[in-house]
Amino acid sequence: MNRRLANVIAILALGVIGILGPWLFPAHLSQFSKLWLFIVLALTWDLLGGQTGYNSFGNVVFFGIGMYAAAVTQVGLYYPVAAYTAAKGGGTEFVFDVAQFYTGLAVGLPVGGIMAALAAAALGMVILGMRGHYFAIATLGLAIAAGELAAGWEYIGAGSGMVTPTPPDTIDTTLLFYYLSFALAAVTFGFLAWLYSTRFGLAINAIRDDEDKAEAMGHHTTRNKVITWTISAFFLGIAGGIFGNLSKFIDPIDVAFNGAEVGVWMILMAILGGKGTLWGPVIGAAVFYVTKELFWTYLLGWQRVALGALIVIIVVFFPQGIVGWLKERWPERFGPSKEEMEAADAKGGA
């Protein structure tokens, strides 16, 4: 089968499942919302970790920043944030009507993305000058530091966390957040598919393969890395904003800056599916998330042991990930496609 056609069919199928979700699995809608968000997490991690070859253990920071920034904006548009967090979000005085709630989300989510992107740009300029493992180690500390900072900051509720605005009863938030999550996953996927088709895609792959060479050929390698992380953080920040609202409560360490869980999961999902591929993170996130949910349902008590074993199995038996394994096993079907190349040749050739 033609690869391009297979791609189109896969995208259409996912799109249809996504749109019909509320009818297909009405009982598990919020789980599926999280699945779409996890796909965003894996895709954005892979942008720097897979395509650019820079393993970051700190991406969860942007997730958390987006979450807090969105929530603070949603509240701050109508009430003083400090008073709101001091009251633990409860009480009858902090009520959001329909218009306020929607406006808050419409402004808050982009603000979450932008704040995360700014943080990535600033951090990137400092630590993306480091190469390979040094960068990975530097990012390890980020999530821990960020969680502690958030837990000590009264304005956003410090250690007792922050409640996201309670929606008016008339809004079906399960459905709303489902479609927001789905839309974000679709937009992220589309954006990255386009980005990887550009010269920028080649430029970051060049950094992954041999950064010294790329620099010696005149590439602005550090600039490209910082831009890559910034893009990654933008989508991740929006995902965080949605996730916060979905969870209804933002704990600084267990929800926002949960490096030990979400921070590690996003890496595992990308690796499981196949680092450095467009579809890998999508497939990896789906397989991982479903497996994880099954463990939590059927192996309760042992779920973390099972998950740990799964992680070991992934790393030992699928170092290339599912898509990477497929490419190796059936290169003619999943390898670099000749037709696409030839088609591009015909377009660009004399």
């Binding site: 010269r199 602005h220 591009a344 660009g348």
Partner: peptide
């Protein structure tokens, strides 16, 4: 410039 990087990877130089 950076914007040139956002062109298709097949936009130039194939021949």
């Amino acid at each position: 410039s950076f914007l040139d990087l956002l062109k298709s990877r097949h936009s130039a130089g194939i021949q």
